[in-house]
Simulated assay, not measured.
Amino acid sequence: MSERLARRLGTLDATTIGLGSMLGAGVFVAFAPAAAAAGSGLLVALVIAAFVAYCNASSSARLAAAYPESGGTYVYGRERLGPWWGFTAGWGFVTGKTASCAAMALTFGAYVAPGYEKPVAVAAVLALAAVNYRGITRTAALTRILLAVVLAVLVTVVVIGIPRATWQPITWDGTGILQAAGLLFFAFAGYARIATLGEEVRDPQRTIPRAILAALAIAVAVYLVVGVTTLGVLGASQLAQSSAPLAQITPLARIGAVAGSLGALLALIAGVGRTAMAMARNRDLPPFLSAVHPRFSVPHKAEVTMAVFVCGLILAFDVRGAIGFSSFGVLVYYAITNASAFTMKRSCAPVAGLAGCVALVAFLPLSSVLIGLAVFAVGWATRAITR
């Protein structure tokens, strides 16, 4: 068994990391593809995505309190449903969140250096991987600073935007709304980072559930206010075509996008590395990824490896393609979360969460679904051969 990680995070730190993940690139970029799918119905889509996220968060909180280890649903699926289910969840998280990292980095590049997004994004990934390498307390401290900048900028966007907003009737294209909800779910999935850090949280049975639900509640409120403002100022058609919609309300949004995408990317790299470490401990990924740095107490080999893969995705995809693929992998992950929680307590929330995940997957863009299925097939085949 590999060396264990150190418990250094309290409730505030865990909540900050989760909230920093949710108020990252999502709030600055996810409204555009959602508007392209649903028009002004994106507000309905946002409520649907938030409801599914709440059900998933409830299941995650219950499971994380029972299994306070690194790895999140990879661990829960193994314990409650069996090794193959755990592997599927872990593979979905690692691949989906690696795509999320690419989306965050590309958003950073689009706001900082339009036309040079990809090299700037690669540089950001390498720099933040170096921060994570130095230890989880440094990750939490930098996330607090970046989150404060993001919240200040979003308040400014709303204050400037609300007087200019004109309200449009909501369109009710059911297919478009469900597709938009699947894409917007990408923005709410940051609370998983809290569960994946379960081995590094103090008093995890109490801290993790509180941090997950607090981070999600704050994020939903912020997304609703910003979504209403952005749609009211730009309108659905202009919003759908924009690569930096909040910057069209105020140039200060570029500062918030930079801070938000960096904060989310920082937390994502930490979460993916720890899930990869948990999978490597059980030889579902190469065992060398389970190594823990003797001084900094981080899964350093897993984090470096994930950073390399993220750089490859940045060079291969654009931000919208990365969001679609990320949503597929993460929705599969949370479907298994809800199924695992149902085996502990047969309540309505896991059933609703599972049904919501399945429905949102079904309405994602076909290209995202096909790429996601191919990636899962590679993972399953590799595990079958190596085991």
Rank of each mutant, 00 (worst) to 15 (best):
L265E: 08
L265P: 05
L266A: 06
L266F: 06
A267K: 05
A267V: 07
L268S: 10
L268H: 09
I269P: 04
A270E: 04
G271A: 07
G271V: 00
G273A: 03
G273T: 00
G273F: 01
R274W: 02
T275P: 01
A276W: 08
A276T: 09
M277S: 14
A278R: 03
A278W: 03
A280R: 02
R281N: 04
R281I: 05
N282E: 12
R283Q: 14
D284P: 11
L285M: 10
L285R: 00
P287R: 11
P287C: 09
L289K: 00
S290I: 09
S290T: 10
A291Y: 13
V292Q: 12
H293G: 04
H293N: 11
P294R: 04
R295V: 10
R295C: 02
R295L: 12
F296D: 13
F296K: 05
S297L: 07
S297G: 06
S297H: 13
S297I: 05
S297T: 08
V298R: 04
V298P: 08
P299S: 06
P299F: 05
A302M: 10
V304E: 07
T305C: 13
T305F: 15
M306Y: 07
M306E: 14
A307I: 10
A307W: 09
V308Y: 09
V308E: 09
V308P: 12
V308L: 14
V310W: 07
G312P: 11
G312R: 06
I314Y: 07
A316D: 10
F317Y: 12
F317D: 06
V319G: 05
V319T: 13
R320L: 11
R320K: 13
R320W: 08
A322M: 03
A322W: 01
I323P: 00
I323D: 00
G324F: 02
F325S: 00
F325T: 01
F325D: 00
F328K: 03
F328W: 05
F328R: 03
V330Y: 01
L331E: 01
V332I: 14
Y334R: 04
Y334F: 15
A335Q: 09
A335D: 10
T337P: 05
S340G: 15
A341S: 15
A341L: 14
F342S: 14
F342D: 14
M344R: 15
